[in-house]
Design a protein around this nucleic acid. Structure first.
Lengths: 150, 150
DNA sequence: GTACTTTCTCAAGTGCGCTTTAGATCAAGT
DNA sequence: ACTTGATCTAAAGCGCACTTGAGAAAGTAC
């Protein structure tokens, strides 16, 4: 038989079969079908699914992930350079998150020193006290989650 | 009038009125009622809501946040030491996330060098290729999201 | 060829975190 | 007093990321 069955892919990736079908609905993979109508996957599909798993841990919404994957050539014969390109976007995203968390930690350090979380002047919740400038929730310490720079 | 109306709290915190009521259903705040049945909030409630906003940005699920807040004395007259205690739990959580992201970044650096995201031997998606050990998705690089240490 | 497992499709359900809608009541300004 | 705006409750809806269920067809092992 040519290609892997969905169960094999599930086993290799650790995803549930239902999740893999769900991802297909969202254009993340486009497996071929065999004579009986069963999906057949190749190695490129496993790569795409692995990519999804990594990206999701970074907090990217599925739609964004699908968009990133759409930038890949033809779904088949993706080059090393293609992956490298989107990998480095990941790198930037991770750096941004680390930076944001460090900023949050620094503010929190000040707060721990002064019991500050209980004061309205605290830098940690103060941004929110400047009157819901841009919708619910403070927005400056962590990025809007899932927006890739560029 | 004694206490703030829900709209005032919304304005001061940046939360939607509906969100504040929703949080009440989940035991995060327990405002008093005036003669006409309208909610009346005090400063302690604003602190609790600010806490929720900070904690949510850290990815804590609401249920966990509510549990943390339940550890506070009586909802009224919370001491500086109380906030300090849970603030330092935050600090630990943030440190853990930074550490996890740095580990992820290091692995990704290797991957960018070798176009590795496209190889099944890649450290980044390999954990998933060790056969769905513990449910869907790789679990080692980032913490299970929202579990406080201790 | 029979039994068992896997896969198929399609629809509906789940959990989280809220928002929206509807109709009624309360509060505040003039 | 009257009007306008805020708040009330209860129920339903939403977006995301899936899972579950039902019934049928396909694959595989003996």
């Amino acid at each position: 038989m040519a290609g892997l069955a969905i169960g094999d892919v599930a086993e290799r990736t650790g995803l549930a079969v239902s999740a893999i079908r769900f991802y297909e609905e969202h254009g993340i993979v486009r497996p071929l079908r065999n004579a009986g109508g069963h999906r057949r996957y190749d190695r490129a599909d496993i790569r795409r699914l692995s990519f999804v798993m990594v990206a999701q841990r970074l907090g990217f919404p599925l739609a964004r992930i699908a968009a990133l994957l759409d930038e890949l050539p033809d779904n088949r014969q993706v080059t090393k350079a293609d992956w490298t390109r989107i990998s480095s976007q990941f790198r930037e995203e991770i750096d941004a998150r680390i930076y944001a968390l460090e900023a949050l930690r620094d503010k929190l350090d000040g707060c721990i020193g002064c019991g500050c979380l209980s004061l309205e002047t605290c830098a940690l919740h103060n941004p929110a006290d400047v009157k819901g400038q841009q919708g619910p929730g403070p927005r400056e310490l962590l990025p809007p989650e899932g927006q890739l720079p560029g």
